[in-house]
Amino acid sequence: MSQAELLLSESGPGPRRAAGFALLGERLWRPASALLLPLAGAIGWEAGAEQGLIDAHLLPPPSQLLATFAALLAKGEAVQHIAATGQRVALGFFFGMAAGTVLGATTGYFDLARRLLDPSVQALRSVPPLAWVPLFILWFGIFETSKVMLIAVGVFFPVYLNLAGAMHGVDRKLVEVGRVHGLSHARIIRRVLLPAALPGYLIGLRSGLGLGWMFVVAAEFMGASEGLGFLLVDGQMMGRPTTILVAIVLFAVIGKSTDFAVAIVSARLLRWQDAFKPSGSA
């Protein structure tokens, strides 16, 4: 469609359609724009290695990383490592989220629970999560359980803090509307408090997931025979920077993808929000 046609059709059903195309373009452009910087970096890096400006032994160029990754894929090892790490993060995230949600909602709603529990939880929060590692190893051994526990600890705190804080910050006036309409405690929690606290809760889940990816590396450094963290250790032992870099890039890509997925779901759930949008956004 030409520019003139677009303008002329503005009084008919056209604008919608045009807006639809614009929206589709927008949808594709947005994620694509995020890839510009990494792509430019990769090209520069490759060119630099080609020209001998970068020492390919210490910083192997993208082509070598791709080759190594392809080899790992072919042997089925890439999938195995990604699945191992992904499973640990998923399990740790699940348990951390469940505990954070239950405890956060409890202290967020019941004042007594808040006074009894919250100070202790806050005190535990100031313990560096890695400090638990020796204890977990003694308790659960060096296998999966202690790894999942460590990740769950990392996920728990942001989920707990954000949910309890968000529930505490819910406008008393909205809760009163629930009371006016004769809603029970349980109904008020479900129909007023939880939806009102949802933005804070989702932020908690998102930062919890981020921490889950941080802690999986620590957990896999504890000793693992598979996983992206294992690849890192393995690459160091074997003196293979390519393996290390492949694992790092995989962390970046997978971590960002899961975060993006949560962000998309959040935006969908929070489309009612009247929030500030940076200029130039749709």
Partner: peptide, 16 residues
């Protein structure tokens, strides 16, 4: 509170 009595506040107090 009872459904026989409705109340409108100074602010609309709509669930966003």
């Amino acid at each position: 509170p009872s459904p026989e009595i409705g109340i409108v506040f100074q602010e609309p107090r709509l669930m966003p």
